[in-house]
Every structure is written in structure tokens, then in C-alpha cells.
């Protein structure tokens, strides 16, 4: 395995001491208290913000070397809120591919199937979707760009248990079968341990601890992580 993303001594006004490597074809979970800089970290990886110090590289080259719109397509992000655009589900799904004039409505159907939504939903106005459906459309919209890296900011928090299981299966499939790299923020510690290969623990803006998920949960070394896991 080789690192697809590497962050070295990254710091900006929200995060500090961020140093890690993301291995290709793995799922990394990010945990930490609210306001600890988890979402800010993902924004850095999608280049929605930039580090003031340090460097983040993608496939061995600094992220700033890539055209930013191309990079964002390759490192896709799903936000905590679905943030769907006005219009139909299809309008949302084709947003990314249409920018490259690369849309085929068959793709829409397969994307909906991936996130376990019925295909007749394609023509439905997003206003009429439930919170869980909106979140799944947001995930499908990002997948439409076929990114190498998928950044998920609490993307399953609005879903019921059964749907969470289905999405976790999908994520597992994306990693094992399609070789995608996933970084997922979650407040559900059981989920973080269950699905993560690696886990990053953020605390007060710092990357306090990182490592293999099972080891990190079973043998936390920092006091902050111990306190956090005790809840």
C-alpha cells in the first residue's frame, strides 16, 4: 500500500500539528469532540481551505500542483448537511459530471441503486425527500464524479440503523472492490471502530493520536483519547 494523501506539519487557524498519511484503498475514521477541527481537516483535503504552514500532497505531488477543480473531483466530499441544489434528484446527480459534459442518465440510475434509493426518485424534487434520502442523494452526487478519495463528514448521522448498515456495506465495497480511499468523520465510536482500518483522533485542533483502529480503541495512549473514549 502507498499513501494517496500525505499531510506534513499542517497548520491553519483551525488545525495544528496535523501529520498523517492516508493509504490507498483504506477507510480511515476521524473521531474527536465537537469543535476539535475534524470538519476543518476534511476541508483542507478538498482544498476548500489551505494550510498556512505545512503541505498536503496527493499521489506524491503537492495538492497545489493540480488544477484545483480537477483535484476536488478526485478528492470528493460529502458534508454534514446534504446541501442539495434546487431541482430534481437528477439535477443534483449530474451536477459534477455535467461540468465535464460527461453525463448519461443511466449513470443516475446506477448511482441511486448504489445508495439504495429507488430509480423513480430521479425525477423527484429534492424538496420532497426525507433527511435520510437527501443525505444519500448527496453521497450519490459525490460518487457521480468517481473520486479516488471520498471525504465523509458525518454522512450517516441522519440515517436510520438499517440504512446505516447498507451505506457501511457500500463503503466497504467501494474500498475493497473499487480501491477507493475513504476518510469518514463519525460521532459513533462503535462505527468508527467497526468500519475503520485506521483512526485519527482530533482534539482542540490537534491530531492527537493516529493508528490502526482496533489498536487505537483498545490501547489509547494519550490521556485526552482515554477521557474521550470513556465519554
Amino acid at each position: 500500500m502507498k499513501p494517496i494523501i500525505a499531510a506534513k506539519n499542517v497548520r491553519n487557524e483551525r488545525v495544528k500539528n496535523v501529520d498523517f498519511e492516508l493509504m490507498e484503498g483504506t477507510l480511515t475514521t476521524v473521531i474527536g469532540p465537537s469543535g476539535s477541527g475534524k470538519s476543518s481537516l476534511l476541508m483542507l483535503l478538498n482544498r476548500l481551505t489551505d494550510p498556512e504552514e505545512g503541505e498536503i500532497s496527493y499521489k506524491g505531488r503537492p495538492m497545489s500542483d493540480y488544477p484545483i477543480d480537477e483535484l476536488r473531483r478526485k478528492v470528493g466530499m460529502v458534508f454534514q448537511q446534504a446541501n442539495l441544489f434546487d431541482g430534481t434528484v437528477e439535477d443534483n446527480l449530474k451536477f459534477g459530471p455535467s461540468l465535464k459534459k460527461d453525463w448519461d442518465s443511466k449513470l443516475g440510475v446506477s448511482l441511486l441503486q448504489k445508495v439504495h434509493l429507488p430509480e423513480d426518485m430521479l425525477t423527484k424534487d429534492v424538496e420532497h425527500l426525507s433527511g435520510g434520502e437527501q443525505q444519500r442523494v448527496a453521497l450519490a452526487r459525490t460518487l457521480a464524479n468517481d473520486p479516488d478519495v471520498l471525504l465523509l463528514d458525518e454522512a450517516t448521522s441522519a440515517l436510520d440503523m438499517r440504512t446505516v448498515e447498507l451505506i457501511e456495506e457500500l463503503l466497504d465495497c467501494l474500498v475493497t472492490e473499487e480501491g477507493k480511499t475513504i476518510v469518514m468523520i463519525t460521532h459513533d465510536l462503535k462505527q468508527a471502530k467497526r468500519i475503520g482500518t485506521y483512526t485519527l483522533f482530533m482534539n482542540e485542533g490537534s491530531l492527537e493520536e493516529k493508528g490502526n483502529s482496533k489498536e487505537l480503541f483498545n490501547n489509547p495512549t494519550s490521556e485526552a483519547l482515554m477521557r474521550f473514549l470513556e465519554g
Binding site: D69, R72, R73, F79, L84, D86, F95
Partner: peptide, 20 residues
């Protein structure tokens, strides 16, 4: 703001993200 960030994250240029 959320929708514009979402559009940018999908590879939209500012003009495309601001269209709506």
C-alpha cells in the same frame, strides 16, 4: 454557503457555483 461549498467540492468553478 453550504450549497456553494458543495458545488466547489464537486469541481465547480466560482461562476458555476454562483450560478444559482
Amino acid at each position: 454557503r453550504g450549497k456553494i461549498l458543495a458545488a466547489l467540492s464537486l469541481g465547480a468553478k466560482p461562476a458555476e457555483a454562483s450560478k444559482m
